[in-house]
Design a protein around this nucleic acid. Sequence first.
DNA 1: CTGAAAGCGCTAACAC
DNA 2: GTGTTAGCGCTTTCAG
Lengths: 345, 345
Amino acid sequence: MATIDDVAKAAQVSTSTVSYVLSGKRPISAPTKARVEKAIKELGYRPHAGARALASSQTNVLALIAPLRAAVNVNVIMQFVTGVVQAARSYEYDVLLLTQEDAGGIDRVANGSMVDAVIAMDVEEDDERIPALQAARQPAILIGLPRDSGGLSCVDLDFHAAGTQAVRHLAALGHKHIGLLGSDHAVWERHTSFLERLLTGARSEATQRKVELTALPCASSEVGAKAAVDEMFAQSPRITGIVVHNEQALPHIMARLRELSLSVPEEISVVALCPQDVALAQPIPLTSVDLPAVSIGRAAVEMAMSRLSSEQPAETRLVAAVLTERGTTAPAHKRSARVMRPNSL
Amino acid sequence: MATIDDVAKAAQVSTSTVSYVLSGKRPISAPTKARVEKAIKELGYRPHAGARALASSQTNVLALIAPLRAAVNVNVIMQFVTGVVQAARSYEYDVLLLTQEDAGGIDRVANGSMVDAVIAMDVEEDDERIPALQAARQPAILIGLPRDSGGLSCVDLDFHAAGTQAVRHLAALGHKHIGLLGSDHAVWERHTSFLERLLTGARSEATQRKVELTALPCASSEVGAKAAVDEMFAQSPRITGIVVHNEQALPHIMARLRELSLSVPEEISVVALCPQDVALAQPIPLTSVDLPAVSIGRAAVEMAMSRLSSEQPAETRLVAAVLTERGTTAPAHKRSARVMRPNSL
DNA sequence: CTGAAAGCGCTAACAC
DNA sequence: GTGTTAGCGCTTTCAG
């Protein structure tokens, strides 16, 4: 491999000059610059990342902690990851992927000076990674909102508003009994940071609008999802509008409604909380509150970069929830009797 | 941050001694070792990755190239990624994630000495990343089998055998007309490396067993998948057994069969080619040829490590295809007339 | 506008 | 069994 000295020699300049044409940190005359660039090209020179990190204490790498926990929606995770990686590249950054759930990896890559910043996904209410993140000298960005962010930056969808808006939309259409099918039981019990906010938002709006809200977890599997639908109607047979926050279960829930001969949106309205592309991929495009996973990932990177460049203090950013009306919500329609055919499968 | 010299000072030894207790590359007396380890712990010392890379020309990082192409199955990708990351950790390696489709990233991380090896996923028949991979001085492992591996190591499921076995299983049960629903059109046309092998395997077995094989791509969306089922029956109405290689479409295909009043496995047999967990997650556990994505990811890392440690030549490893009989295949049953109700949705 | 040179923190000879 | 020290390839003062 060619080194910076090889380039300097070939271009007949000093190593510092080569370094400076590379970094642009001081003005270089046009002819010199041209000679250097030519040499770089001809030698196929690439600065050695380790040497650079050692000399500048900057790695141009950021860590992405993406725990592959039970029942998380892989699809959504990948969207976050995509957003993070793409945004990182636009800042000339690469991404080191950690999937361990524990804080060990954070310590290793942060204190080992492998990365300049760390972004943590799938944050829980009381996330055990927070102490390690605080201890690190690199800035950290949480995707999610823990109970106590402890001075770390956070980005997330405004799940409170998402819950509010979904319920408000249904209530405004005259629905008096609303169901909410959430994430898998495992996620529900893990106190993932978005859950409480979504529920609080939905409940407060329900109370205010004087509608009944029945919220329960929902497995992602076909049988689990269908069981959840049945359970929901068992708990509140007069439900005419449901909010679904479970991308995997979505098709199964829709299928179950069909099996129960409940036409959407005539007899039952559905608003999903999911990435736009999954809302659009359904046979009937779903009215949905968008979960802009790619944008949030991108935002996390931008926040990291801003903290890196200007020593700015931590901020927390909640992305506005926007509901888009599509084909699955309509004015409430009184159903005389619920047609339950639990074994129609 | 504490440096190795700080540790040496605290433990009253030379820096090289600290280095050697860390690497174990030369014997250290028990008491010295203890003193050093104590100092390390007390100072919270972590070797600086860049300095280490510079001095040893080894980064303990490997690159994983996972292009997020259209219509690839995110679920399966994540399984590969999981396998790679976990296996890497077991070798004290971290993973740098690249998602660009082009070869630029390879050049950057390999020639920039950011990684010791690179693993590339989603390999096509004539993959444009191969030249860059060959040019790099780091070993490369392809997950997939290109037309010409050009001296690179490859791992993949033995898709030829997978096709063979799926068809053989159905043929042995007496099915004379077999359908094959594959991946999305986009993947089909991109000449992803597994496709040709799967088809060749299936076709040769079909020819040998004298059964008719109707193979076609299948979109992953609900409507697309259902349309593919209809199209398949339109092309060959007497089909009684189908092979499905499309995890996303699987539930929709099963749903379509149900809508067509075709009971599985009495009237129609289904064998899937997918990760075991998705085969088991269906309402009826599917007879399937396992796609052991996690293991393959792990194998890729092992191959990288072996090439790193012993300068061994490139090898290509095809993981045996194993078919597990579950609830969705049964002896062929002659159907007098296909009940087609295309608009039953 | 350009050069010389002092590190950055570690590894691995080379000594003893 | 342990210590000394010369780099690894870059960035960034300090000089001019």
